[in-house]
Design a protein around this nucleic acid. Structure first.
Lengths: 188, 188
DNA sequence: CTGTTACCGTAACGTCCGTTACGGGCGACG
DNA sequence: CGTCGCCCGTAACGGACGTTACGGTAACAG
C-alpha cells in the first residue's frame, strides 16, 4: 500500500521530467505507473495529495542523498563540496531531477501547501549548508556565514534551473567549476 | 493593434504572477485585460503565440532595464553590480517578475519554442555579464571570466527562484549582500 | 466449498479548457 | 445617406480534465 504510493510518486516525477507541469494529469500518472486512475484515487484523496506526497518524497530522497555525500567525504571543505555537488545536476539523471524541481516550484505558485513544503525543504537545506560551512570555515562571523550559505544554496538552485533549460550552456564541467570557485571563495 | 498585443502580454504577466502557470488560461488573460477571448484570438493565432509574445516582450523589457542600469552607474564594477541588482528581485514588483519568470521556465518544459526563447535570452544575459566582468576585472583569464560570469548569472537566477517562493528567507538585504559578496569575489 | 470483504478497473458525470463560427455594431467611403 | 468591410463580443463545440459511483474479481475466513 505504501509502496503503491511510492510507485505513483515516482510516476509523478517521471511525467514531470518528461512533459513538465502542463502534462501532469492523473491519467498520465496512472498510465506511467501502469495502472488506471481508479488506483490513483484509492491511494490518494485527489490530485493535490498526490502532488504533495511526491514532493515530500522527493525531499526525503534528496536529504538521504545529501547525508550519503556528507558521510562519504573526508574533511570539512570536501564535505561541503560533496553536498553541493550532489544537489546540482551534473548527470542526465540529475538534469531530470532539476526539471522535476522546477515543475514543483511552478506548481507551488497558487498551491499554498506545496509552497509551504518547498519553503521548509529549502530552509532545511540552508541550515545544512550553514553547518557545513561553519565546519569548513570556523573563523567566519555568523552573519557572513549566513549570507554565504544562502549564496551557495542560491547558486546551486540557479545552476539547476539554468542547466535544466539549457544544458549546452551549463554542462557538468561549468557547474563543477562554478561550485568549486564558490566554495573556495566562501571558505576564505 | 500592437498596443493590444502588449496589453494582453501584460495581462499574461499579471495572471502568471498571481495564479501561476496552472491559472494561465485564455479566459483568465482576457478577463484581466478587460476584454473577451474573441479579442485574444483575433490578436494572436492561439494560446501558444500569446505565451511566446509575452515571453519575448518580457525579455525586451528586461534588456531595457539592464541597459538603463548600466548607463546609470559610474565605473565598471558598479555597472556590474547595478545590472545584477536590477535582475534580482529586491522589491515586491521584482518578486512578481520573478514568479512570472519561474512560470515561463516551467512552461518552457514541453514547449520547444518557449524553451528556445528562454535559452537565447539567457545567453544574451550571460554575454552581457561577461562583458561587464571583463571591464571590471580586465586581468581575469578568459576561462575564469566565463566561469564566473555564469556563476553570477546562476546566483541571480537562484535568488530569483528562492525569493519568489520564500521571501522571508531571502529578503532584499540578504540578496544584495549575496550579490555584493559575489561581485567582490568575482572581480578579485 | 461458500460467503464476505477489500481492492481496483470501468465507465460516466460535470466542469473547464482552447478554439471556431457567427452576428452585430461602427467607422469609411462612394 | 446608404452600403460595405472590419473588429470584436457571443455562443457553442469537441475534447480533456478531476472526480465519483458502480461492478467484477481475487483472496481470505469459516
Amino acid at each position: 500500500m505504501d509502496s503503491q504510493r511510492e510507485q505513483l510518486s515516482r510516476a509523478v516525477w517521471s511525467v514531470l521530467a518528461e512533459q513538465g507541469l502542463p502534462g501532469l494529469t492523473v491519467r498520465a500518472v496512472a498510465e506511467r505507473a501502469g495502472c488506471t486512475t481508479g488506483l490513483v484515487m484509492h491511494a490518494f484523496a485527489g490530485r493535490h495529495e498526490l502532488l504533495v506526497h511526491a514532493r515530500r518524497l522527493l525531499h526525503e530522497r534528496a536529504a538521504e542523498s545529501a547525508d550519503a555525500a556528507e558521510a562519504g567525504a573526508a574533511g570539512p571543505a570536501e564535505r561541503l563540496r560533496a553536498v553541493l555537488r550532489q544537489a546540482a545536476c551534473l548527470t542526465p539523471a540529475g538534469r531530470e531531477r532539476a526539471r522535476v524541481r522546477v515543475a514543483f516550484l511552478a506548481a507551488a505558485a497558487g498551491d499554498e501547501e506545496l509552497a509551504a513544503v518547498h519553503r521548509q525543504n529549502n530552509r532545511v537545506f540552508v541550515r545544512r549548508v550553514e553547518r557545513l560551512l561553519a565546519e569548513a570555515a570556523p573563523d567566519l562571523p555568523r552573519a557572513q556565514r549566513e549570507v554565504r550559505a544562502r549564496s551557495l544554496v542560491a547558486l546551486v538552485e540557479g545552476l539547476n534551473c539554468l542547466a535544466a533549460a539549457d544544458p549546452a550552456t551549463y554542462p557538468a564541467r561549468a557547474q563543477t567549476a562554478a561550485l568549486d570557485d564558490a566554495v573556495r571563495a566562501a571558505t576564505s
